[in-house]
Design a protein around this nucleic acid. Sequence first.
DNA 1: TCTCAATTAATAATTATTTTCATACCTTAG
DNA 2: CTAAGGTATGAAAATAATTATTAATTGAGA
Lengths: 146, 146
Amino acid sequence: MLETMDILKERLKEKGSKLTPQRRATLNIIMENKGEHLNTEEIYELVRKDCPEIGLATVYRTLQLLEEMDIISRINLDDGCSRYEIKTGDEDHQHHHLICQGCNKIIEVKIDLLDDLEKEIEKEYDFDIKDHKLKFFGLCSDCKHK
Amino acid sequence: MLETMDILKERLKEKGSKLTPQRRATLNIIMENKGEHLNTEEIYELVRKDCPEIGLATVYRTLQLLEEMDIISRINLDDGCSRYEIKTGDEDHQHHHLICQGCNKIIEVKIDLLDDLEKEIEKEYDFDIKDHKLKFFGLCSDCKHK
DNA sequence: TCTCAATTAATAATTATTTTCATACCTTAG
DNA sequence: CTAAGGTATGAAAATAATTATTAATTGAGA
Ligand SMILES: [Zn+2]
Ligand SMILES: [Zn+2]
Ligand SMILES: [Zn+2]
Ligand SMILES: [Zn+2]
């Protein structure tokens, strides 16, 4: 927990920015909710408990910043808003998501077997791949069996 | 071209809906622009040439409908709006997209090698996969070499 | 042709997000 | 200590994409 905060502080300093209480509180909430996929409004409500005076615009600004700093990543689940999750540095790429069309549950997939596919595409299309995003849609175990 | 229109008519009828001139014109524009990834506003502007009285809200509704009918698919390129393209029935899943972070060009990837990965996930997570969406981010040939 | 639900255009309303702006807060030079 | 210059903030206004409302129109089947 401390480590990520220190990384943020470091990267902010490089950019001439500061680690403010609002930014600290926002990052803390996202770290405490690892595995959730909170949207901006939800993050705002949670941060307000620690930091009641914070404004929604600041949360938006902070999330943008944290994404630029490569601390969190934005997820688009086609539900009309952006969601965020902490980036765990130990993964090469991010994990992926299974989205249940029955109950809207989100399941995280740890497997990442796109390396071969990426290599093939890089050669075939002369394209330098930096990252990818992959979502699967379907029915979860519960929804399938009823 | 005729075929897709007939499929739409068929599916609409099943649902008790009608194939109106507005819907026909919208689908035509999307079919004529295969390979493009038009957003709603762009589709609206193009449809207006054939069908000047059409309203933007109708285009929104029609695109929603065409997506439900599995005739077109929505693409999210994180540029703040939805884009659409015709679904070519001869592909098992859809093709994927390479998004250049240098010039925002979109390149279509015909390769789809996710079948093995899907099987593995279906077993591991007891999840029934219906579809997937995959995007790659990086630098295109032009942007890479300059 | 007649009937009626489906559809539409125009408009207003929503929703998520961004921008504006005046103020507050630091850090540093004088 | 105090002023200057920069960053950050909250509140409110502005934007942009999308959806809801409503009253009028249309088109397919009897
Ligand atoms: Zn489910
Ligand atoms: Zn996740
Ligand atoms: Zn490029
Ligand atoms: Zn495409």
